[in-house]
């Protein structure tokens, strides 16, 4: 699932920002990268929920604008792991 999350984020980000070339794990979600706001990042999260059948409601996304795609993928993995631990 770990690689799937990054793959989905890269694919969905490329769809949402077709004007940005070469989206990969190192691409920033916010300034200097995809220039996404919190609602667009929430849309990425919904794509991961849809494709993987997981629930990310309650996951903090306020700080995601300062993350790269890989960092956001790790943020999602951490949230899901915490849920499994409970």
């Amino acid at each position: 699932m770990a690689d799937d999350i990054r793959r989905i984020l890269v694919e969905e980000a490329a769809k949402l920002r077709p004007d940005v070339s070469a989206v990969d794990g190192g691409t920033p979600l916010g300034t200097g990268g995809l220039e996404m706001d919190s609602l667009t990042i929430a849309e990425l999260a919904v794509s991961v929920e849809t494709e993987l059948g997981v629930d990310l409601i309650g996951m903090e996304i306020d700080q995601a604008k300062g993350m790269t795609i890989e960092q956001f993928a790790q943020h999602i993995r951490t949230f899901l792991s915490a849920g499994e631990a409970k």
């Binding site: 999260a45 919904v46 409601i57």
Partner: peptide, 10 residues
């Protein structure tokens, strides 16, 4: 509203 992460959770 839920998908926009605007609501209180948990």
């Amino acid at each position: 509203f839920a998908n926009a992460r605007a609501l209180a959770t948990r």
